[in-house]
Design a binder for these strands. Structure first.
Lengths: 124, 124
DNA sequence: TCCATATGTCGAGACTAATCGACATATTGG
DNA sequence: CCAATATGTCGATTAGTCTCGACATATGGA
């Protein structure tokens, strides 16, 4: 991922309404939500929301698809992967010793089901 | 990590000079660099740089320590972990099936060799 | 075709961020 | 204490962002 694209993504997420939109679309993966419903859900005027959605779209964090009269927005999952990778690469560039525990930290959220179930059982 | 703190971090990194500073400090871990040297390295007036460093500091991405006449800035590694974790948790919240390959993607950068892991464990 | 629905675009006002000269503060050595 | 060095703060200017009313465009049904 290039710096320029990363900056667009950081700027897009550095705004409360847009961060909320992104999280909302993550929750609604993989179906997505129409623009109007997003606006209603977050109590923002439709034209204001349209601007925010355009910024998220230019940043590559969401994608839009027309479906009859509605336009369905979806979170772009590999954009999250790219942005996270950008951070991790910066972090690990020459410093792999601090990166391993970083990845280990994600395991509870990302681990394959078997391990996740075992970890959960331990805490119970 | 709270949304408010994440927004501060995203905003801090959404500016070319500040992103450069952050990457520069990552390269110079764990020694850090004095403010003046950072400004000289990136060809930015010292007072402008001072403002940028303050913003990075408020965002929790760097820390400062006075050392004689100079003030040494260092990247805060666990801030990267927190911010990355914020993204990944958002991504994996209810969607662990898309998260496993995401973590696998990091392996090449993180070199999960036993020696590296043990060394990291010692420091923690 | 005409209307209702869904969304996008434009433009103005208010607000916030970025930059840098000038000045202020902190530290050290003489 | 004074001068030199290193950094931070203030204030003004410029540039960019956020918001939303008004208008424009696209789609589907009567």
């Amino acid at each position: 991922m290039e710096s320029e694209q990363a900056i667009l993504a950081f700027a897009a997420l550095a705004q409360p309404t847009r961060l909320d939109v992104f999280r909302l679309l993550m929750e609604h993966e993989p179906d997505g939500l129409p623009a109007g419903e997003i606006a209603r859900h977050l109590a923002v005027p439709h034209n204001t929301m349209s601007t925010h959605l355009a910024i998220l779209s230019r940043a590559g964090l969401v994608e839009a698809e027309r479906q009859s009269r509605s336009i369905i927005y979806r979170a772009k999952l590999h954009a999250v992967r790219d942005l996270t990778g950008f951070l991790v690469k910066d972090c690990c560039g020459g410093h792999p010793e601090i990166c391993a525990p970083l990845v280990a930290e994600f395991s509870p959220y990302c681990a394959p089901k078997k391990i996740a179930v075992r970890e959960a059982a331990k805490h119970e």
